[in-house]
Every structure is written in C-alpha cells, then in structure tokens.
Amino acid sequence: MIAIQNISKSYGDVKALNSISFRVEKGQLFGLIGPDGSGKTSLFRILTSLLKPTSGKATVAGFNTVTDYKDIRKIVGYMPERFSLYMDLTVEENLKFFATVFNTTIRENYHLIEEIYQMLEPFKNRRAGDLSGGMKQKLALSCALIHKPEILLLDEPTTGVDPVSRKDFWDILKKLQKSGITTLVSTPFMDDAELCDEVALVQKGEILKMDTPQNLANGFPHKLWKIVSENNYRTLKVLDEFETKISAFSFGNSVHLATGDDVDEQAIVNHLKQHNVKLISIAIIKAHIEDVFMDLMSHEKGSS
C-alpha cells in the first residue's frame, strides 16, 4: 500500500531523512518509533504530497507522491502532529467542515467514526480549543476518517495524551484495522510499538532496525537482568563499576542490566552487596522495545 524507496530529504545542510526504504502492506498497522527529530514528520509530509523528497521515490496505493498528488489526497486520511483542527470552531463544525471539503457528509460515513464520536457527542457544541488533549486527538482522528480513506497517516497522535486516552486511541486503531484500513502511525512511546504488526525504529533520519515487535524483542543480543533495589539511583552508580556490564538503565522502580552470556547471578549479587546496595529481587527478563532501542542507539553514537 505504501512503498518508500531510498527517500532522502535535506533542509540546507541538515539531513532530515537519509535514504529510507520500507513497505507497508495492505491492512497493516505499521509503526514508526523514534524520538523528536528523527525525521518522522518529514516522511509523513512527503507521503501526503505536502513536501517533495530531495531524492528517492514513494508511492501510496500505487500513486506517486510527487506526480499524482491529487489522487493521493483523496484516499489518504492525515492527522498531523500539530494543527489539524480549527480551534474556534465547535466539535461538530470541525467535522462538518472536513466532510464538506471532501465532498461527503457526516451521515454517509458515520459508521466509521461512530464509536469515537459517541465519546465526543456530549461536547459537540464546545469549541475544539477548549477540549482536553485526549478529546482533541479523538476529534482529529474523526476528521481524518470522515471521507473514508483507504490509508491513515497519523503523525504522533498520542503525544501529550494521558495513558488511559492513549490506550483508548490504540483500541480504536486496532478496530479500524479490522475494517480494512491500512495505517502508518508514528510515536515516541516505545511501548506503543508492541501494538503494531511491524515497526521501524528510527533515529536521526535513519532506520535503526525494522521487524515485528516480537522479533525485535527476541533479537536483543545480551543477557538482560531486572534488578529491584531500595534505591535505583545508587544501584546505577554502583553498576557503573561493574566491569562486565554492557549497559544499565533505569526502568521505573527497577534497573535493567545487560551483560554477556557468561555473567551469572552470583557475580551481580556479590558486586551489589560489596557496595551496600539493598537488593530486593533480581531476575532474567525478556527485553522491551525500549531496551532494544537504547542498545541500538548506543552503537550509533557511543552515548553523548
């Protein structure tokens, strides 16, 4: 449905995208996972025909993003990261506006947005600017869906959104997927990756790795330990001096320690004990996408 071949985009000396290639198959929910500044927004703007690539080629449903832009705009539902709603129009007026622009009516495609719109209905006369972050995103998604697009392009739809609204939003995406819509979604939240069929981990305009979330997690190349202690900050400092450490990062109230295969539990426990760390528990765990991402990052830049 989407084919991206060696797409590069430069702004002056700054390379926003550096020869990116991937494909999104029909019906897939594909995630671009990476921090701000990794080039996600530039890619979305290229795919929606709003920006021309410096080199490379992209097609959306077979249409070329440069030459066939009129066709693309009809079949794509785009939710940009910023400015997708008219803040001084009401909820209902926004939706009506987008329906009219695409030459359709709310009633015609109401089934697509019904579930989301029911959550918005109590506020339908409220101005979009006065909605909470989670509600704004639901309205923006409704507006992107109202012309029954074949492909949804969602640029960081869950940034600034609380964990509950974020879960609701992903539930909606999963349901839309069942109705046959192809979705490309970007997010800086690593745990969102697990909800996608396939993800590309992106950083500084390049793809670090691309696979199913399961394969990415299984491909973590080190032994990974979850260490719960009385004081994370101290544990991290103490682990700095653990010679066979590959990396150590805090994860909520625990620390994830990566080591080589030959390191055993006793060696870690002894080291912590020697430095007076009060250990609560230690166990070998499966890597999260975030572990994978940080591991790939540290190869990239040697830690800044």
């Binding site: 990476g34 921090p35 701000d36 990062f249 991402f293 990052m297 800044s304």
Partner: peptide, 17 residues
C-alpha cells in the same frame, strides 16, 4: 511540565539524573 515529551530514551534517563 512534561519535560521529556518526545525525547529519546537515553536522554530521558540522563535528564532524570
């Protein structure tokens, strides 16, 4: 106020330090 929104995971942790 949401100081680490959109920041990469390593820098996010450095920020917390």
């Amino acid at each position: 106020d949401e100081p680490t929104s959109g920041v990469d995971p390593i820098t996010r942790r450095q920020f917390w330090n």
